[in-house]
Nucleic acid binder design. Sequence first.
DNA 1: CCAGTTCAGTTGAGAGTTCAACTACTGTGC
DNA 2: GCACAGTAGTTGAACTCTCAACTGAACTGG
Lengths: 139, 139
Amino acid sequence: MLLEVLDRQLQQDSGMPHGYYEILVRLSEADQSTMRMSELADSTRSSRSRLSHAVSRLEERGWVARRDCETDRRGQLAQLTADGQQALASAAPGHVATVRAHMIDALSTDQIQQLGDIAQAVIDNLGAPAVSAAGRPST
Amino acid sequence: MLLEVLDRQLQQDSGMPHGYYEILVRLSEADQSTMRMSELADSTRSSRSRLSHAVSRLEERGWVARRDCETDRRGQLAQLTADGQQALASAAPGHVATVRAHMIDALSTDQIQQLGDIAQAVIDNLGAPAVSAAGRPST
DNA sequence: CCAGTTCAGTTGAGAGTTCAACTACTGTGC
DNA sequence: GCACAGTAGTTGAACTCTCAACTGAACTGG
């Protein structure tokens, strides 16, 4: 719920779903502003399907262009366009501002540190166990 | 992203969007398992529109019934049905288990306490400021 | 009593996500 | 060389959410 609120704020602020935002960020960080679709999917932790749809929308907006991959004919490359860079540049400050305003500024330095540790602990735990709450002896 | 993962887990586990789950929970806690639509919307922090759609789906599944309000003819009452209680009962353990497995178990007692404090601080901060990150002097 | 406003809730369109096919290409083993 | 499995990516349907418009009912002032 806290999570939802933040998420919603982020989306509204930048005028795009933050999944899209992440795609643009990854691309902007990549060599030649270009990435393989699969890489992009993995690095944004989204399904291939989702990415495919998302890139289609971004393509419609002219922010990303698709090209064929020369070495693997199954492959597709997504490249950030000049317009896409523009869009990213104007969205980024809003994103950052919102996060700051709502989270960082609300917390003490200690709390930020703690939150980092907590997130890490949870993430570490996500991959492995999938434990049922029922049993769970000492282990 | 951490947030998304958790959210997705929750949804899958109980076989229903967790917004729906929350509706059922509120209703089950209410007197007569019945609430005014607006109350329900407020208490689940969802828009009236969203609630209206959601209750419609829940009604189709036979988990919730709508009735007219006797004192205010604009009003509608949502009531949890027997089937709805069933659905809730079978969903709840999964929900709880998932949260436990992925979050609670991963954290120390201190961290859980800290997380609570952090969430509270952020929430407290959400309502008021909406500060732009740029300026933000001492205030 | 009537116009104007506010409140309760619904509806429909548009957007994003997921899931389950599906196409097309690559790599492997015989 | 060929069947077969695996990989890359796309597509369409189903679902939920949001937003803006809309219906009906309840107040309020004159």
